[in-house]
């Protein structure tokens, strides 16, 4: 038995920790485990991928999982993100979990022979933790789907992994509760994955001309089509009755998503606001309020 679980999340959501909680839980069950994350320059909101391999024998694999048995999509907007491409290589007979309030058939995901499961774990985390941190819920969901890890092992892994940080005992207890709830609400399925790897054709180096000498970028605005606001879960709104045009929000916005109009008013660029809520916290006149968004863009 070798199970390959791939987590797709965004920086700050807990994808790496999810892969570790699942790994520790399986290790606790006496299984052999390998877990690892892949991320570029560390940045909140950037796509993060993490892997857990679980086996009852040696694991002769390493690094990126091309052909997962289970894919956990912690952020629905990643389904359309070409750099994340969370569905790639998912094996026939495998399971796709998407953190979403929509039903599986509303997701527009067409994968033959793949069971699609959805559950809104963000709202669950907001209710229990007060924060959209999804590591424990995602790990619990994955544990239920692969059927080889017990809820008790998940609980002890949550305590073990989160206990190393600076979380209070109360916060850890809420995470344990969150894991328990996610575990119980996700249905269990029987994995029946088949070998699926596509070898890919090695191309001769002759296709490389030697004329593209360096990684120069010749066009400006080459990420104009990437709307970095799509993973927001709270949207800020400005009440112009209270706003004094003091520009504090403009100065603090880390994404330059606060634009000052010619009349001096701040306007939020909602396509690129990531919902960090720093403006909401810093506004001296409390002119900014927030509302929960299930799907930002």
């Amino acid at each position: 038995m070798l199970l390959r679980i791939r987590f797709h999340g965004r920086g700050g959501q807990g994808g790496k920790t999810a892969s570790r909680i699942l790994g520790s839980a399986a290790f606790d069950e006496g299984l052999n485990v390998q877990d690892s994350p892949v991320y570029g320059a560390e940045r909140r909101g950037a796509p993060v991928t993490a892997f857990t391999r679980i086996s009852d024998g040696e694991i002769l694999e390493r690094g990126f999982i091309f052909d997962p048995d289970v894919v956990i999509v912690m952020d629905e907007t990643l389904l359309e993100d070409p750099t994340a491409s969370p569905l790639s290589g998912l094996r026939e007979g495998g399971i796709l979990f998407v953190n979403s309030s929509r039903k599986p058939d509303e997701l527009n995901v067409n994968l033959d022979g793949v069971e699609v499961v959805t559950l809104n774990i963000t709202d669950m985390a907001l209710e229990l933790l007060g924060k959209p941190i999804l590591s424990t819920a995602s790990a619990a969901v994955a544990a239920k789907l692969i059927s080889v890890v017990s809820p008790d092992a998940v609980t002890s892994a949550v305590r073990g992994e989160l206990g190393e940080g600076s979380l209070s005992p109360e916060a850890i207890q809420m995470n344990v509760a969150l894991a328990g709830r996610a575990f119980s609400l996700v249905p269990s399925f029987k994995l029946s994955t088949k070998e699926n790897y596509s070898p890919g054709t090695v191309v001769p180096i002759g296709v490389i001309s030697g004329m593209e000498g360096s990684e120069d970028i010749l066009l400006v605005g080459n990420s104009a089509l990437r709307k970095t606001g799509d993973w927001r879960i709270y949207a800020p709104t400005i009440d112009y009755e209270k706003c004094t045009n003091c520009m504090i929000c403009y100065a603090y916005c880390p994404e330059s998503a606060m634009v000052i109009e010619t009349d001096g008013r701040p306007v939020i660029d909602m396509e690129n606001c990531k919902g960090c809520l720093i403006c909401y916290r810093e506004c001296p006149t409390k002119a900014i309020s927030i509302t929960r968004e299930v799907r930002a863009l």
């Binding site: 390998q34 877990d35 690892s36 994350p37 892949v38 390493r62 690094g63």
Partner: peptide, 10 residues
């Protein structure tokens, strides 16, 4: 790096 540095195993 990554393949071992950030990879947990037994």
């Amino acid at each position: 790096g990554f393949y071992l540095s950030f990879t947990r195993e037994r």
